[in-house]
Nucleic acid binder design. Sequence first.
DNA 1: AGTATCAGTGCGACGCTGTATCATTGGATG
DNA 2: CATCCAATGATACAGCGTCGCACTGATACT
Lengths: 139, 139
Amino acid sequence: MSTTEGTTERLEDTGYRLTAPRRAVLEAIARTNRPFTIEELSERLPNIGRATVFRTIKLLNELDIVCRVPLEDGGIRYERSRSGRHHHHLICSECGSVTEFSDPTLDEAIEQNAETARFELDGHSAELYGRCAPCQRPT
Amino acid sequence: MSTTEGTTERLEDTGYRLTAPRRAVLEAIARTNRPFTIEELSERLPNIGRATVFRTIKLLNELDIVCRVPLEDGGIRYERSRSGRHHHHLICSECGSVTEFSDPTLDEAIEQNAETARFELDGHSAELYGRCAPCQRPT
DNA sequence: AGTATCAGTGCGACGCTGTATCATTGGATG
DNA sequence: CATCCAATGATACAGCGTCGCACTGATACT
């Protein structure tokens, strides 16, 4: 729910319009607790054009309200960003759950490598694939 | 050139057939020094079916002979893997060059995070985006 | 060497994900 | 409440990759 709250002002402050479709997308996302594809989201919003859903998610991604989650197989899902800031993902291949984490040590290791290579770092991504704790229980 | 050499046996040893199209793809890759898209590769091999190029690259990727390079914009390029083993990428958004690097410290930081979250790690990816040293020269 | 077998190929159709176009609509502002 | 232009919806399109299927040719067996 806090997703919808703080966000409406975010949109306005950034000069974007708060329209009915955008509100609908935000609400749909707030009601979701698992990573979703655009297609899934679009199906749950039959009155909203597919293109608009794509456009809205792209926008929300730029505003760090949702984040892109690249899967191991090359697929893409999205999830509402809990922290709203830079982070990495633990992606469970069993149940599909995605957990965010931040780690200064990890970020520093990345920066260190860039520096060594005299590489001017703009951004980076790091995804961890495997099985989350609940999914490790014996079958 | 070493790409073609060691690889032919790799294919045979793994039970795959060494066919003319696969040889052609390997040679084309050996002649390339920059990351490529399948489409580019396919254009350079007009006698080889597009599907076959896809299939071959998929195979070579599994054998760690080429590696997938996910770009910042979501696009995918491939590059022949120099090390043939686990590594990360420095991806220049200016010239598109891709540099491999390995760093035990980085890998360890990743493993540490997985452990903390009681996450059973299968694999991970880390991509660094920015500008390589030559591209930082004043315009 | 001759032949049988089936992995690999080529072609074209298809599917999925995302974007472009463009006429229409409806928020924000004064 | 009138104006303006960002945003929308519908649809066509583009890119990337896979599928299905008939054919071929590399490998193994005799």
